[in-house]
C-alpha cells in the first residue's frame, strides 16, 4: 500500500474531568478515504479537530506525512504546540471543511477562495485568482463568484467552502459532517463534489452520517463509540460483518 499520510497514535482528549476520546489510533494512507461514523458525543468531530490541531490532544501523537507534530507541556499543565510555525505549516496542508461552512461573510465567493493562497501560501494574486476560478468551476460555483455568502443557499455555501479548502492545495482533507446542516434536497449536490474528490485519489477523512456515502466511497470505515474505536475495516467488513452491538444499534437508529 502507499505511504501513510496521517498517523494518529494513542490519542486521548480530555475536557476538565470528561474524557471525550479514550485512546484512538488510526492510519490514513495516501489516496485513502476514511469515513468516521458514530452517534453524537462519540468524539468523532473532536478526533478530526485534533488532527488539524484545532484541539490539542491531551495525550497521544499525530504524524502528518512523516512529520511528527511536536507538543510540549504548557504552563497550565495542558499541552501546547512546541512550534507554532510547524502547526501553521501543517494546517496549511491539511484543509478542513466544517459543518457550518464558516465562509467569511464580508468576502465574496472568489475572495473567500483566494484569501488563504494569497495570505498564507503567498501565491501571487493573479495566479490565485486563476486557480481559484478553476476550483469554483470545479464545484459549480464559478457563475456565483461575486456573490456574498449570505446570498447563497446552504449547498452553494458548502461547495464554496470546499473550493476554498481545495485552493490551499491540501495533501489531506478533513470533512466534519459536511452535509449535516443542509436541507435534504441540497445534500446531493455537495456529496457529488466530495465523491468526485474521492475519485481523483485525494486523502480524505470524512465524519458523516451519510451511510450510502460511507459504504460506496470510502476505503475504510471507523465506528467510534464512547471515545473508542468500536469497529473498523473495509465498508464491507464493518457494514456486513460487524457484530458490535452499539454499531447495530447505531445503524438501526439511522435507518428509521
Amino acid at each position: 500500500m502507499s505511504k501513510p499520510a496521517v498517523v494518529v497514535e494513542g490519542l486521548h482528549k480530555q475536557y476538565g474531568s470528561i474524557e471525550v476520546i479514550k485512546g484512538v489510533s488510526l492510519t490514513a494512507h495516501e489516496h485513502e478515504v476514511i469515513s468516521i461514523l458514530g452517534s453524537s458525543g462519540s468524539g468523532k468531530s473532536t478526533l478530526l479537530r485534533c488532527i488539524n490541531l484545532l484541539e490539542i490532544p491531551t495525550r497521544g501523537e499525530i504524524t502528518i506525512h512523516n512529520e511528527l507534530i511536536r507538543l510540549k507541556a504548557g504552563r497550565s499543565g495542558l499541552r501546547v504546540p512546541s512550534d507554532r510555525k510547524q502547526v501553521e505549516r501543517i494546517r496549511s496542508r491539511v484543509a478542513m471543511v466544517f459543518q457550518q461552512f464558516n465562509l467569511w461573510s464580508h468576502m465574496t465567493v472568489l475572495q473567500n477562495v483566494i484569501e488563504a493562497p494569497i495570505h498564507v501560501l503567498k501565491v501571487p494574486k493573479r495566479q490565485a485568482i486563476e486557480e481559484g476560478e478553476a476550483f469554483l468551476e470545479r464545484v459549480g460555483m464559478y457563475d456565483r463568484r461575486d456573490y456574498y455568502p449570505a446570498h447563497l443557499s446552504g449547498g452553494e455555501q458548502q461547495r464554496t467552502a470546499i473550493a476554498r479548502a481545495l485552493a490551499i492545495n491540501p495533501s489531506v482533507m478533513l470533512f466534519d459532517e459536511p452535509t449535516s446542516a443542509l436541507d435534504p434536497e441540497l445534500v446531493g449536490e455537495v456529496l457529488k463534489v466530495i465523491r468526485s474528490l474521492a475519485e481523483e485519489g485525494r486523502t480524505m477523512l470524512v465524519v458523516t452520517h451519510e451511510m450510502d456515502f460511507a459504504r460506496d466511497v470510502s476505503h475504510k470505515v471507523l465506528f467510534l463509540h464512547q471515545g473508542k474505536i468500536e469497529s473498523e475495516g473495509t465498508p464491507q467488513a464493518v457494514f456486513e460483518e460487524s457484530t458490535s452491538a452499539p454499531f447495530q444499534q447505531f445503524l438501526a437508529r439511522g435507518a428509521t
Binding site: N52, N102, W104, H119, V120
Partner: peptide, 29 residues
C-alpha cells in the same frame, strides 16, 4: 463569528494575519 476565526486558524493563518485579514475587516463593517 467563532467559526470564521476557526476556519482561518485551520488554514494555517498566523494570529496576526487572522486579525488583519478576518477579524478587523469584519469588525470595521
Amino acid at each position: 463569528p467563532a467559526g470564521e476565526i476557526e476556519v482561518a486558524r485551520s488554514m494555517g493563518m498566523s494570529p496576526l494575519t487572522q486579525q488583519r485579514r478576518i477579524v478587523l475587516p469584519s469588525t470595521f463593517r
